[in-house]
Design a protein around this nucleic acid. Structure first.
Lengths: 162, 162
DNA sequence: TTACGTGCAAAGGCTTTGCAGTCGG
DNA sequence: CCGACTGCAAAGCCTTTGCACGTAA
């Protein structure tokens, strides 16, 4: 697997050993379709008969992030999630505040906008995180929560961390 | 103050009392120019001679968020920040990963892009959170961190939560 | 062999919660 | 007066850290 080779390469360059645990954790993340939490990975590995301590999972994920092979995400659930990052192009997220569903999308226009703003304000871009919150198809119409005052609901305070 | 009236109105509508503490906390947030952490607010209030427990600050901030008068932010510092939200238009953030500086900006194009994507994927938008990470003017050229493998650095994994 | 990794449990840091006393309306 | 609030301290959670033992190269 390509990503695994990149990881091996990273470790080698930094004179770090490729342990059985690191390999198992990296494989699990690389094979996963979606954003995994540390617990997701722990369960997944346990199911394969691999017993890996959570501390090691945390440590390895940080390594993968430093290597540029994984990305840390926070959908406001109270814990982090991780997704592998091949040489993939940047993508953005649409999140349902009702059921938690996360949809990814990509728009060239978004990249241009980012570049424009950054150059205008004198920033050298490294990355971005765009999360659009709302109700997905399935959840539309099932609202409830407390009434907001003042501003129109369409621009009301959204969950961030939330 | 306008925002204070909105808060009063919200409390009244929900039959909740406007206590001295709630008023002090709300005032402190409404008067603040930038995103405040719970500790910032606690210090600020203490400086004014108001002794308010942190639990109460947390509880009141949640109330303000529910009322649509405040927005919860997470710049990956390990704690949340809050900014008041008048009837203000949505804005986005540019964050320096070196010094932590946060710049806000606004682009009509961003609103249009958001609307387009949402309607295309069948989402009813509530809000969004866009954070662009990079180096600000002042910090440009002071890089260090570990070498990423594979993909170009310009799209490398960025700090989210981070 | 030797530096680095791993697991476990304890420690940390932010946020929430339980409870007795207090207060707004 | 009654329901809701406040403060404090304790509890919760996720994540990091210390340490003795194990392991890649």
């Amino acid at each position: 697997m390509l990503m695994m080779d990149l990881f091996r390469s990273y470790l080698h360059q930094n004179r770090l050993p490729l342990t059985h645990q690191r390999e198992a954790i990296a494989m699990a993340l690389f094979e996963a379709e979606h954003h995994q939490s540390v617990d997701d990975l722990a369960d997944l590995l346990r199911g394969r008969g691999e017993h890996v301590g959570k501390a090691t999972i945390y440590r390895t994920l940080n390594l993968l992030v430093e290597a540029g092979l994984a990305r840390e995400l926070d959908f406001g659930e109270g814990f982090k999630r991780y997704e592998h990052q091949a040489g993939e192009t940047q993508h953005d997220y649409l999140i349902c505040t009702s059921c938690g569903k996360v949809a990814r999308f990509r728009r060239e226009a978004m990249d241009r906008l980012q570049a424009d703003v950054a150059s205008e304000l004198g920033f050298a871009v490294q990355s971005r995180m765009l999360k659009i919150y709302g109700f997905c198809d399935a959840c539309a119409g099932a609202e409830s929560s407390g009434q907001a005052v003042g501003s129109p609901a369409s621009v009301g305070a959204g969950p961030e961390t939330g």
